[in-house]
Nucleic acid binder design. Structure first.
Lengths: 202, 202
DNA sequence: CGGCATACTAGAACAGGTTCTTGTTCTCGC
DNA sequence: GCGAGAACAAGAACCTGTTCTAGTATGCCG
């Protein structure tokens, strides 16, 4: 199954024009998501705004969910790379994880519509989006694990703690989207879960 | 805001025929969900099978999500009332919660299509479905809290533990739906979260 | 240059959730 | 029994995600 053949440029490699299109599409999606959330990201309008035909949009992103999960990965990547440029403050794993997750939560909730769009896409993801979803989770997991670890050496259970915290984090966001808890509750619940999960892991 | 007025029977109270329609609708939804999951529950077919007009279906359940979340509450209610009729085995909270959640998980996964339909509906629920979603969560939370407690007296943190475990439970179901983990992993992950969360609470 | 696959555009077409319209039936107070 | 309003049936209509069709442009290999 090596590189397929010789047609056009080799697969995987996009021309500059294509990178440009892809980027315009993601930007348009983010803008629309920010304006009115998940429902306001309408594929026809994304296509129009990014100056591509509807069919082309679907060539780049095979569904609305793919598009939005990709956009989320894009946003998390920015957040994560900003994080890696500094040392996480805090003397205990809980403190550091709280710092990181609070920052991420606040940063996302500054733009509730955008957050709603991304979280809903994550939830709606079926197995055809598994790869993209995995990218998002690994980005997020990486941030949490780094925070647990701090400057100490890795602990084998770190990944498990991170996974539970990530689950709670997503679940609380959903509860918030579902109007079941307030924006303030989101953070209170997450904080309490962090302490609960990391209580001995000082 | 007392009882509105005199028209028809008083609000809230359904006639026998209406209870019957509602029940037929839920049954039809469950049957279709069981046949092909969320996508196979098509409102036109639910209406047809339950012998009501599409408009009537929408009078009873204002959206597909409402319908399916209601169906889930319905199923959990059955499960919960079966549980209340016996003593939960196990000497520790972990053991009891494992017993309950494993039973619930297995019972649901016996019918993966149905489970998929219900979980997806839970995920898709926005604030207009808050009441129904709350019912599902409280049903589930009640089962977990009862298991934590066992025959001892209640502990103030029980609800918090139950909330985290429920979050993990839902999140793992989603991961499974999303094809990111296997059916076996679902249970393994939940079990490990139970032990993690309840480790001191013996 | 001549083919030829691929990418793209424009727009129609399809599918299923939701809404709306029109006419009928049921319920209840009088 | 009668009239008013709620509930219902039947089906058209609408909206948006997705797919399909026809035609055009582009890049590449011989």
């Amino acid at each position: 199954m090596a590189m397929a053949s010789t047609t056009t440029t080799s697969p995987d490699v996009e021309t500059a024009a294509q990178r440009d299109r892809r980027s315009r599409i993601v930007q348009a999606a983010l803008a629309l998501a920010s304006r009115g959330g998940y429902d306001d990201v309408q594929m026809r309008e994304v296509a129009e705004r990014s100056g591509v035909a509807l069919g082309t949009l679907y060539r780049y992103f095979p569904s609305k969910v793919h598009l939005l999960v990709n956009a989320m990965a894009h946003e998390l990547e920015r957040m994560s790379s900003r994080l890696q440029r500094r040392t996480i403050p805090g003397d205990t794993p809980s403190a550091r994880v709280e710092w990181v997750l609070e920052r991420a939560t606040r940063s996302l909730q500054k733009d509730p519509n955008l957050t709603e769009a991304m979280i809903r896409a994550m939830m709606a993801a079926d197995s055809t989006v598994a790869v993209e979803v995995a990218a998002v989770r690994s980005q997020m997991g990486g941030m949490i694990i780094a925070a647990i670890r701090g400057d100490r050496e890795a602990h084998p259970d770190d990944a498990e703690y991170a996974a539970v915290l990530q689950d709670v984090w997503f679940a609380r966001q959903i509860a918030w989207l579902g109007g079941r808890i307030s924006s303030a509750d989101v953070w209170r619940d997450i904080e309490s879960a962090i302490r609960l999960v990391l209580r001995d892991h000082e």
